[in-house]
């Protein structure tokens, strides 16, 4: 035992340190656990329902039998149309914020608006959708109304990740382009955007996942409990996976559990796989920079 012998004080501190670390580690573990538990539970109870027939046939006998095909189709419609609206607006908004706007009061207000758009409760978005699209613009309860509501709700996701992607492009590239006479837009179009495509894609994919999972905003704007036909245009109503899960688990009596669990599992798998894709793209981008 030499000079470095631990004093009781040092031992106490060391003990505190390990206690703190273990406590935080446990907390983290308790957070990770539910994800595994939920996915596990849904797999165990819903996995058996997953079949070609379940995915590709319509609900039968008052939704107590059959599959979920119309709900899948409806979700694709809703996500597709909302994406077509939100992606261009969101990307261009991020371009404005990152490439044109300086640090002015207007920028601050825009930033605040984006924060709010992300923070407004989904049910308030639903009320907005009813008041604005369904009634005021007379679009009725339709895929269009629901998708527009979803688009506005998910806009912040696209803006945030696009902005991050754009700001990762070094300033020196822009200056080099300006130096040879390229205009601001030419620089954005030919250098900034092509080099942030992957990051933008991440945001777009996240938007897809958000839009696919939302229920409240589409409840009163375009999603239906049950429809015998697949939608033909954006003016039709549609079923949706998220809505279908809500309906099966709260509104319809005597649904065999594996149908409900199967629906929940499909919805969860769609959302998680879309998210995982986005994570994979993001880590690829970080590894494969072109500069």
């Amino acid at each position: 035992m030499g000079v470095f012998q631990s004093s009781p004080e040092a031992q106490r501190r060391h003990f505190m340190q390990s206690v703190a670390k273990s406590v935080f580690a446990c907390m983290t573990a308790l957070l990770v656990l539910p994800v595994i538990a939920i996915v596990g539970l849904l797999f165990v109870r819903g996995g058996s329902a997953l079949s070609f027939e379940f995915l590709f046939s319509a609900p039968l006998q008052g939704m107590t039998a059959g599959g979920i095909w119309p709900a899948i189709v409806g979700t694709v419609w809703l996500v597709g149309v909302s994406l077509a609206v939100a992606a261009p607006i969101g990307v261009l908004a991020a371009v404005y914020l990152n490439e044109y706007a300086g640090d002015s009061w207007l920028t601050r207000i825009i930033h605040l608006a984006i924060v709010n758009l992300a923070g407004v409760p989904s049910i308030v978005h639903a009320l907005f959708g009813v008041g604005a699209f369904v009634l005021f613009f007379s679009l009725g309860t339709s895929i269009l109304s629901a998708s527009l509501t979803l688009a506005i709700m998910t806009l912040p996701v696209i803006i945030a990740s696009t902005k991050e992607a754009l700001s990762a492009v070094p300033m020196s590239f822009r200056e080099a382009c300006w130096n040879v006479g390229a205009t601001r837009w030419q620089t954005i179009r030919h250098v900034v955007l092509p080099n942030s495509v992957a990051g933008i894609l991440t945001g777009v994919i996240l938007q897809v996942s958000r839009a696919a999972g939302e229920t409240a905003p589409i409840l009163f704007t375009g999603a239906a409990f049950f429809l015998p036909h697949l939608p033909q245009s954006v003016n039709d109503q549609c079923m949706a996976l998220s809505m279908h899960l809500f309906t099966l688990s709260t509104q319809v009596p005597n649904v065999p559990p594996q149908i409900t669990y199967g629906t929940a599992l499909v919805l969860l798998l769609v959302v998680l796989s879309v998210n995982t894709t986005s994570i994979i793209i993001r880590s690829r981008v970080r590894r494969r920079r072109r500069w």
Partner: peptide, 11 residues
Amino acid sequence: IELLAAIPSVV
């Protein structure tokens, strides 16, 4: 944690 955030509220 990102995946935790992605789980839809209806689930």
